[in-house]
């Protein structure tokens, strides 16, 4: 009874402390901006940012829609490709040996450096954005799944074999569910990267999207709107990560830690 109370208390302080830190940060920001320590036109106060967010809300919403569609299409395609690669590489060891170093090397190329090329190749529509996101998402998904498959318990696999399980059954009942933990960990990172990837490729050319909005408000030195869109992007990333957590809970009911 007492320990439960204590735990609850700890839980609230766990949530209270970061909230307090954010509040203090916002307050300092407000003061710095209002007193003119940093000029208003360079650093609008949080209140002004909020106001800009409200006035531009319909526009932001419309642009978010484009960015989110790109993100989701890229995300799903990237997960699909990553999953496929991981399965093939797990099933056929020579392919794994041949491809693994290549995949690692491709990861040393910053995706941002590829974005202009993709625009040149595929134009200003959605295609280059989706491709960039696929490239970003593919790697963490493929590697985490592959490591997950690898880490499957050898004795469990022997036991499954002794029960006459086929390769596909072993994959379905042992390897795949065993890799979910790592998969979701990497997916959490992948979703926020995907949002950022969409925005960056929109910077380089496009007709709509938060990245396009950003370049537009930047050109007009609308700092308040700039901050508004930055916060919106981070809020979207957070929301997606939250979604991944929900999905994880749904997909892994045996995991009692969360």
């Amino acid at each position: 009874m007492f320990s439960r109370l204590k735990k609850k208390l700890l839980n609230t302080t766990d949530k209270l402390l970061p909230a307090l830190a954010i509040l203090i940060l916002l307050a300092v920001w407000e003061i710095v901006s209002d007193t003119g320590i940093v000029p208003k036109y360079m650093l609008p106060s949080p209140v002004e940012v909020a106001q800009a967010f409200v006035t531009d809300f319909p526009l932001l919403l419309e642009n978010s829609r484009t960015t989110l569609i790109e993100t989701f299409v890229g995300l799903f395609a990237g997960i699909g490709v990553g999953f496929l690669f991981a399965v093939i590489m797990d099933m056929f060891k020579p392919i794994r040996k041949a491809l693994y170093p290549l995949i690692v090397i491709t990861q040393t190329i910053p995706p941002v450096a590829l974005a202009p090329l993709l625009v040149l190749w595929f134009g200003y529509e959605m295609t280059p954005k989706v491709i960039l996101i696929v490239l970003i998402v593919f790697f963490p998904v493929a590697v985490s799944l592959l490591d997950g498959y690898e880490s499957a318990d050898k004795d469990t696999i022997s036991l499954m074999r002794s029960m006459g399980a086929t390769k596909v059954q072993i994959f379905r009942y042992v390897k795949f569910p065993g890799a979910l933990e790592q998969f979701f960990a990497s997916l959490k990172i992948a979703v926020s990267y995907a949002v950022v990837g969409a925005v960056i490729s929109e910077w380089l050319g496009g007709f709509q999207g938060l990245g396009v909005y950003m370049t537009r408000v930047k050109k007009s030195y609308a700092f308040d709107k700039m901050f508004a869109v930055i916060f919106l992007i981070s809020a979207l990333s957070l929301l997606l990560m939250f979604g991944v957590n929900l999905l994880k809970k749904k997909c892994m009911p045996w995991d009692k830690r969360n």
Partner: peptide, 19 residues
């Protein structure tokens, strides 16, 4: 030929993700 006799090991090897 596997699949003809049941086999149980020291570790229970129950799949943690199945009820």
């Amino acid at each position: 030929k596997p699949g003809h006799i049941s086999y149980m090991l020291q570790k229970d090897l129950l799949l943690p993700y199945r009820t």
